[in-house]
Design a protein around this nucleic acid. Structure first.
Lengths: 230, 230
DNA sequence: GGCACGGTGATTGTGGACAATCCTATTCAC
DNA sequence: GTGAATAGGATTGTCCACAATCACCGTGCC
């Protein structure tokens, strides 16, 4: 039998990992069986995830995996940019030479993966690069906010796919960030980070506009046809 | 008998309103009596407030009003600045003349209250001024984050008290923000907001340093001497 | 055929009882 | 007198049963 915290973690992992469809119903009894947990634990986990924004709960109508709208996705990205700019500035004041070595090594590895054409590995290294900067800035609140926001947008349809030719520019931008950090220049670091992230939101906006143009959102297993799913 | 959501709201209001001391224990049975609610409702409210950061819950040891450390207070203020800069930028692109009229009216009223020496009313108008800018930027996520962060820091000892002579400068800074918005200049608006908020964090840092210098934190009704408090 | 109405099953909300855990204070040995 | 071991009380964690609510579906009326 799993305990309270474990149930929360596992359910959260299941949602962020894509094991539930967006908007899918989360019936308490099903979750009890799925995670070998009591109803108290399941309910507590749902309440927490509701507050966290990963599920929505309507009174007497149960919980669903939260569906993120295009607008919300953009807002998340904008907040992310604001926080990462701040962290880049702070990191410039605190970065050590060991940090710089590690960042440069990561960028080098990214360059290698681009050459091999490994978009998945590149995405992972990109995440590691940014997390490293969070760690340098040593800002618990911002790191927590960024983590929860990332977990919200990760199961968003619009994955930031690298456009053809973007990989090289992305590499240069990362290198520019490292250079600004190496110079211990807060303004330059913030600017380099802003420059790097600005295009992310623009491609996101394009993707959303394109997707909205071809009709409202349809998710694979959305509201209808879920009574037979049981 | 109160329902689930009401209990959450009332408990939240009680905490942010200062009806509990920081670090005070929140015993479920007491809360049941206090809010005329069932244990389920109380527990759900505590879980939500835990996730929200207003209370801490240790397994088998119950919940307490969360005590915010000096570091956390500074981090909250830094994130607030990052978000408000972003919102000022966005607001500059969307502000209407009606918005500008209202902002100028608010600043005028602030000027009047400064003349009368009404720090409480000034603080309220200051909050209204910033909330108005949030509304202009129309950014739901940032507004939600700022609201929860404000509710955390509002019950913080270090209230940002206006130093003698600060009031006039603060007024000028508000006026500068309005002017930048009126010019529809995103860069100037963000800079004016940053200038306005930068001194808040510096006074906060001074207050924390001074308070840390005279020994570790003592709160009126902290950990000891609470068994007799029942 | 369409719409209002009521029954039925599924699911959530709530309260109570019991088990598990922790803190406190007393007791006992040294 | 000091320390450890222990018993007691208080509080939280969990399970279970029942009430409340809602969605679905069939029926009957127009």
């Amino acid at each position: 039998m799993h305990s309270n915290l474990e149930t929360y973690r596992e359910l959260r992992e299941a949602i962020t990992g894509g094991r539930f469809q967006p908007n899918e119903r989360l019936v308490e009894s099903d979750l009890m069986a799925m995670f070998q947990a009591g109803r108290s634990a399941v309910r507590a986990a749902l309440v927490r995830l509701d507050q966290e924004g990963l599920v929505t709960r309507e009174p007497n109508r149960g919980a669903r995996v939260r569906l993120i709208s295009g607008r919300e996705a953009i807002e998340i990205e904008q907040v992310r940019i604001a926080l990462e700019k701040m962290l880049a500035r702070t990191a410039a004041e605190r970065v050590t030479s060991a940090d710089l070595d590690e960042l440069m090594a990561t960028v080098g590895e990214m360059r290698r993966l681009v050459g091999e054409g490994d978009p998945l590995g590149y995405s992972e290294l990109n995440a590691r690069f940014h997390r490293r900067i969070w760690a340098i800035a040593d800002h618990q609140l911002a790191a927590a906010l960024l983590t929860t926001m990332k977990s919200q947008s990760i199961r968003f349809q619009y994955r930031t796919i690298l456009q053809p030719g973007r990989a090289e520019r992305s590499l240069d931008e990362h290198a520019a960030i490292v250079a600004a950090l190496a110079a211990r220049d807060p303004d330059a670091s913030e600017a380099a980070m802003a420059e790097h992230l600005s295009q992310v939101v623009s491609t996101l906006e394009r993707a959303i506009a394109a997707s909205l143009a071809q009709g409202p959102w349809r998710h694979p297993s959305a509201t209808p046809a879920e009574s037979r799913a049981r």
